[in-house]
Amino acid sequence: MNTNLVDVRNVTKDFHNGRITVEALRGLDLAVHEGDFLAIVGPSGSGKTTLLNLIGALDVATSGDVLIFGQDLAALNRRERAELRLMSLGFVFQAYNLIPVLTALENVKFVLELQGVDGGRHERAMSTLEDLSLGELANRRPNEMSGGQQQRVAVARAIVSRPRLVLADEPTANLDSENSEALLRMMRGLRDKHGMTFVFSTHDPLVMAHATRVVTLLDGRVVSDEVKSAGTVTGSTN
């Protein structure tokens, strides 16, 4: 598991607000390996979300290189970055962000439709929901589900196309500890079963406890990179 899915090399990212320039990332280096269950932690303003946006091809670095699966993001245009996100990345957001007018099943199928998958969309989406114990909620709309259920559907949407890398921005922030634990166990299971790589930005100690690797940011730089053994997380908060 030493292959680098992501290489972030000496990256800076500045934001301009009138005359004020905010340096969100200051020469940051990070390599994400295949199979990582990586938690990026740090105080607010340390650059976690900015880093996740760069890795997710949602933003471009001010300087330095960001390589995803060996591809330099700076060389990709807007459409190619969209294609990369669609085909190879999965996103889970803090606020779930399901499409409110579509059912759980339709939310999951929607990604396959965007990808242009012609046949078997229904079966694949349903199978993914069932894998996450969401089969009974397939025809419910987001407003008919709890926060924990919505976040599990969001995970189903992120993984239905079996992306190599899933990026999760504060996925447990709106969940209670019981739902958070269940969600993280489910994601660990997906990582173990399908070999997916997960990168979290988080403040949640529970996520850190489940992570196989914890990277700490401070003022836009990596200040620690701790690799934990796979067996570190065995306990349950239940």
């Binding site: 997710g56 949602l58 807007r78 459409r79 969209a82 294609e83 990369l84 996100r85 669609l86 085909m87 990345l89 996103f91 957001f93 962000n97 499409i99 929607f110 990604v111 965007l114 990808q115 949407r157």
Partner: peptide, 16 residues
């Protein structure tokens, strides 16, 4: 706006 940001993040293209 937020919904469109999510759609763009999911990989939805301008034409779609």
């Amino acid at each position: 706006k937020r919904e469109f940001a999510v759609l763009i993040a999911l990989g939805m293209k301008g034409g779609q």
